[in-house]
Simulated scan of single mutants.
Amino acid sequence: MTTDEAKTTTKRQVPAVTRAVAILRFLARSPEPVGVNPMARELDLIPSTCLHILRVLQDEGLVEFDSQTKRYSMGIGILPLARAALQKNSFSTLVQPRLSQLSEDFGVTGIATQLAEPNQMVVVALSHSNMPFRLQVDMGSRFPTLISATGRLFAAFAELDRDRLQERFARLVWDHPPSFEDWLAEVEEARTRGFAVDEGSYISGVTVIAVPVFDARGKMIRSLVAIGISERLAKGDVPKLAKALIAIRDEIQDSQVVMGA
């Protein structure tokens, strides 16, 4: 490899950009506005550096500042960027009508998630059923990668050792948390059969079925999910939903190959 090629392929560190992204992700996860000092401590930043970056982000409309409380929160300027990203996401465009049909056929909420950062999945497509009662899920909602049915799949296909899995598993919040050993058994089952099911563990009374979506290198980067009220799912609906999700996944992947995506 020549010196010029090495320079081209080497990823250069840009600390200011890395810190700005860390701040935006922190604010996105925070349930309420945050002051500079707590934010700096959490992100291991010098407060003055954190403040300078926040002011630039504020000028760009990506964060908002409350002059009375002296706290920062996400700004609405992020919305056009997020909307443009979703509109240009070929996966979201392809999967949306298929999820809508799934919701109509089975009376479930259908979602597609995508790996947004190392430990988070974000909802990039969504369809609701016409049932009088339905689960509230929003576009852009974020979930830990290891939670619920998608989490079992991510654990099954990600290269994470047992200790790392247990460390992250301990931080998950469930309505009815499984034991780590039971969860590992379910992870192995998901790996074997190619889909995962969460029956009331994550959300009481709710069944979640998920299938993995892989990139060209065989890495799981997305999932297709069906969410239904457990009492309303007929006997045999779970395997039927899993089969339908797998069919959607395969059709989407075939379409993306044809499109060169």
Rank of each mutant, 00 (worst) to 15 (best):
M74A: 14
V238C: 09
A170M: 03
L51N: 11
G260P: 12
S103M: 08
R41N: 12
P132I: 05
V34M: 13
T93F: 03
S73K: 08
L54D: 00
V21W: 07
P33I: 09
G77V: 14
T10A: 06
F154S: 02
A125K: 01
L79K: 12
A20M: 12
L86N: 01
L146A: 08
V36H: 07
Q120N: 09
E231Q: 13
G61A: 08
S255F: 00
D237W: 10
R29C: 04
R55K: 13
V197R: 02
T145A: 08
V225L: 03
L160S: 03
R232I: 05
A156N: 02
R83Y: 04
R232F: 11
E231D: 12
I23K: 04
L184A: 08
E181R: 08
L54T: 01
A158E: 07
S141H: 14
G205Y: 15
P97K: 07
T109S: 02
G107M: 07
R12F: 00
D105P: 05
P15K: 13
I23H: 01
V225D: 05
V258D: 08
Q256T: 12
D4S: 07
I147Y: 01
F133I: 14
K88Q: 04
L102Y: 04
T18E: 10
H128Y: 15
A244C: 09
R29E: 06
E251Y: 06
T9C: 06
R29Y: 00
R142S: 06
W183H: 03
S30T: 06
K11I: 10
S129N: 13
M74R: 14
Q166G: 05
E32A: 15
A244M: 06
D250C: 06
G228F: 04
G218D: 10
P15M: 11
G236H: 13
S255L: 05
P118W: 05
D175G: 08
D215N: 15
M1C: 06
F65N: 03
I111S: 02
P47A: 14
T9M: 10
S92I: 00
N119T: 10
P15A: 11
Q58M: 11
F65V: 04
A244L: 07
D175K: 12
D250P: 02
S179E: 08
Q96V: 03
E159S: 14
Q87T: 07
I76H: 14
Q114H: 08
Q87A: 14
A185Q: 11
M220H: 02
R25N: 06
E5G: 05
P15F: 09
T18N: 05
R98S: 00
Q120E: 10
Q13N: 07
Q136M: 10
R134A: 11
E32S: 13
E181I: 11
P38Q: 13
H176L: 14
M74K: 10
F106M: 04
Q253D: 09
A158G: 11
A125Q: 02
M74I: 15
V108A: 09
S141Q: 15
V63D: 03
T145H: 02
V124I: 15
E32C: 06
V208H: 01
R232Q: 13
P33S: 12
L160Q: 03
E199R: 15
Q136K: 09
P178C: 07
V211K: 12
L79Q: 11
A82P: 00
L245E: 01
